[in-house]
């Protein structure tokens, strides 16, 4: 009951603050005109579509490559482990905008690929993999040693142990941070505008330039991003609460 009241209270505060903001902006000397943006609403929708596509593809690449990164960093072979470490250090130590730029203006021409979307999403996916690899690694390492030992003592091989015992447990713990990564990736996909992918950010610039209404255009862009990230964030919090509850119950028994 208390939770329901809190949600109502929060909603009321949010609406009040937005109202105050609207009053303040409306009362300023700036003359607002959202009509041109509204006329070009399809451009924003296409931009959103491109943003979601880039985010989705990059996320899937990040998942697959992230598992590989995590396994490499947990490998017994020092060579494999070191390659995994290097990958994570290099990706996390450089700005993603620099990586996307190198990928599109440097590597892509070398290998003869000229598709902005393909190059951009692969670069973004490789970037995400470094962070997601760390999430996977932490998840795998959070599974107690006894689980490995019980599985191995039953005759399961190392890959079988990972696949049937460790991953199913670790994955549950990784869902909240992975949702966070998905939110981050949604925002980071805006950098693809730099190489000319016509995603939401690029569409915002296009409309702003066409209509000489940058302020309005990017307020719309911000609102569209929020319409994606806020539900994801609420979902992540919900999952975290649910998983937290079951984990606590496990400790008590």
């Amino acid at each position: 009951m208390a939770r329901g009241r809190e949600i109502l209270f929060r909603a009321a505060i949010t609406i009040a603050l937005l109202g105050l903001l609207a009053l303040a902006l409306g009362g300023s000397s700036y003359e607002w005109d959202f009509a041109p943006a509204w006329q070009r609403r399809n451009l924003y929708l296409w931009g959103l579509g491109m943003t979601l596509a880039a985010t989705g593809v990059a996320f899937v690449i990040g998942l697959v490559l992230g598992v590989a990164v995590a396994l490499a960093r947990l490998a017994r072979s020092l060579v494999v482990r070191h390659i995994g470490d290097l990958y994570v250090e290099i990706i996390r130590g450089t700005p993603v905008l620099v990586q996307v730029t190198i990928a599109y203006f440097g590597i892509a021409p070398l290998i003869g690929v000229d598709n902005k979307f393909v190059v951009g999403t692969i670069a973004l996916g490789m970037f995400a993999a470094a962070y997601m690899g760390e999430i996977f690694r932490a998840g795998i390492e959070s599974i107690e040693r006894g689980q490995f030992e019980a599985a191995r003592s039953l005759g399961l091989s190392r890959p079988q142990t990972l696949r049937h015992v460790v991953f199913p447990q670790a994955f549950k713990r990784m869902i909240p941070p992975l949702t966070g990564e998905l939110i981050a990736l949604t925002k980071e996909s805006s950098l693809l505008f730099f190489i000319g992918v016509m995603e939401l950010m690029a569409r915002g610039r296009q409309v702003g330039a066409d209509t000489y209404r940058q302020f309005e255009s990017f307020l719309v862009v911000a609102a569209v991003y929020l319409s994606v990230t806020i539900p994801l964030s609420l979902l992540a919090r919900r999952l975290e609460r649910r998983l937290g509850k079951s984990a606590r119950a496990g400790v008590l028994l």
């Binding site: 107690e144 006894g146 689980q147 030992e149 019980a150 599985a151 015992v165 447990q169 496990g250």
Partner: peptide, 8 residues
């Protein structure tokens, strides 16, 4: 094992 280590 002492602590069972059942698969939860």
């Amino acid at each position: 094992f002492q602590h069972f280590h059942l698969f939860p």
